[in-house]
Design a binder for these strands. Structure first.
Lengths: 214, 214
DNA sequence: ACCTGAACACCGTTCAAGT
DNA sequence: ACCTGAACACCGTTCAAGT
């Protein structure tokens, strides 16, 4: 099977999925494909172009806008579809943020999102503010700085727990409350999907209210 | 002047401010300090620890919570103070996101923010959702994926502009509208500070409404 | 003309040798 | 005991040599 841009991209995405983007190097990718490193440069100008192309693979997995519903439902669905793609390829958000300018595929996605606001009756100005306010949430970034329950796993003795509670009383109160809520549920930690939708709906509802007021 | 952790951190922050975090290497940092690379390892265990310490320098620049006002004003001020610190050191958001777990200083900041919601009358559950919904905005991340006007500068001929308009009609409409709005203002492009505050207030207003409804 | 190995200019960090 | 140069194991990419 000869090398092709498609095969290079597929292997790169798979490697990043498996090892994270830090584990992706031209040399490792070549080895994965059973090829000398320089062979990759026939299909990709350099690593930056490879990263851009990988982003476009993920963006290509986002569903097109659903027809036959109101703007809010359609946008909600599409953002959740984008979130699904990013959850399958968690390296994407980091790579996108590190890139200097967006790829044409990302621009096309943004263009389509702007169109959905416009079709929903939003003025140009409000659409502009809305796009900024949605920010990277448009693409399904959950933009969590950290998972508050990840650090408070079973591998922590009572002594350090007591120290934590002293240093960060409010975090502790919050974690305890969450954990108790979920005593009956399997596993611990908060429901990321719920939190994402909570924030998304808060945003969409607020924007709708601003539109109706104008 | 002997090398100290303080001096190493100061030089590292200055180097990242000037060259971006990609331009920061242990070797360059050592050269900047007129020191052999290995000398740094007396004050910092490794590069990861250096990055964590640099983040803490920036977090240390965030104002403490203002007393004597309502929760909303106090939180608004503090978030804008955090945004100021991040604007002075634009590499911080990227570094924070690349770190596996938050530093104690970041945890302390989050703890204090949770405390401000609680003092404002938010239930534990709503505070939890609020922290997630605010996400990295709590720290002043503007989380723009790109600046829509940056790519449409003067260095673009009419032909490529027409192509862009065909491919991305909605983006074009938006950029044209923004540019016209600001014909009288010096410079082109949207007001990032306004957009940030717009999104912040949308969030805070929405959260307040949810609190009052409960 | 095409492919590719060696080489270049980097990187973070280890480790042993020198003081 | 402390400091540090050389070395190791990487990296993306250039370039000339080999076919």
């Amino acid at each position: 099977m000869p090398l092709s841009k498609e095969r290079v991209l597929g292997a790169a995405v798979a490697l990043a999925d498996a090892q994270g983007v830090e584990g992706l190097s031209m040399r490792k990718l070549a080895q994965e494909l059973g090829v000398v490193p320089m062979a990759l440069y026939k299909h990709v100008a350099n690593k930056d172009e490879l990263l851009d192309a990988m982003v476009d693979v993920v963006v290509g997995e986002i569903d097109p806008p659903a027809g036959g519903t109101d703007w809010k439902t359609a946008m909600r669905r599409r953002v959740l579809s984008a979130r699904g793609a990013l959850l399958r390829h968690p390296w994407t958000s980091r790579v996108m943020e590190s890139r200097a300018s967006p790829t044409p595929a990302v621009l096309a996605y943004m263009d389509s999102m702007i169109g959905m606001f416009r079709a929903g009756g939003f003025s140009i100005d409000l659409t502009h503010h809305a796009m900024h306010a949605m920010g990277s949430r448009l693409l399904g970034f959950s933009q969590e700085l950290f998972d508050e329950t990840a650090d408070v796993g079973p591998g922590m003795d009572a002594e350090t727990l007591r120290e934590l509670a002293g240093a960060f009383p409010h975090i502790t109160e919050l974690v305890v409350a969450i954990t108790h809520d979920q005593a009956s549920v399997v596993g611990v930690g908060c429901d990321d999907q719920f939190e994402f939708e909570f924030a998304l709906d808060l945003m969409l509802d607020g924007l709708e209210r601003l539109r109706d007021r104008a």
